[in-house]
Amino acid sequence: MKINVNGTDYTLNVPANTSLLDALRVNLNLTGSKYGCGEGACGACKVLIDGHATPSCITPVASVENKIVITIEGLEKDGQLHPLQQAFLDEDAFQCAYCSSGMIISAVALKAKNPNPGRQEIIEAMQGNICRCCVYPRIINAISKA
Rank of each mutant, 00 (worst) to 15 (best):
G38I: 07
I139T: 11
I143C: 11
C42A: 10
S106Y: 01
I104K: 11
A62H: 08
L48F: 02
C133H: 11
D92G: 15
C57H: 00
G40H: 01
G38D: 07
Q120M: 14
A109K: 00
I104P: 10
E39V: 09
S56V: 06
N4Y: 02
D78F: 12
I139E: 09
C131D: 06
P137E: 04
Y98A: 06
A16G: 13
A16V: 03
A146V: 02
I3D: 03
E124Y: 05
I70D: 11
L110Q: 04
V47L: 09
A93C: 09
I104H: 07
A107R: 06
T71I: 03
V108I: 03
A53P: 04
A93V: 05
N27K: 15
Y35A: 12
C131G: 07
P55D: 08
E73Q: 14
L81M: 15
Q80M: 14
I105M: 13
C45T: 07
G102K: 12
N4T: 15
Y35T: 01
S63E: 07
R138L: 08
T54S: 04
C134Q: 14
E91N: 15
K2G: 00
E65V: 15
I105P: 08
P117F: 08
I105D: 09
I122T: 13
V135Y: 04
R138D: 13
A16L: 06
C96G: 10
V69R: 00
I130K: 03
A41M: 13
H52Y: 12
S100T: 15
G36V: 06
Q85I: 04
N141W: 00
E121P: 02
A146D: 09
P137K: 13
C37W: 08
Q85A: 07
A87Y: 07
Q95Y: 10
L84H: 10
L21R: 05
E91R: 14
Y98Q: 05
A53L: 08
K113W: 02
E121L: 05
S106R: 06
G38K: 01
G32W: 02
C57F: 05
A97Q: 11
A109I: 00
T8Y: 08
P60V: 09
A112W: 00
P60A: 14
I49M: 06
E39C: 03
A41N: 12
V64L: 06
P55F: 06
K67M: 10
V26M: 09
R132C: 05
L75H: 06
L81F: 11
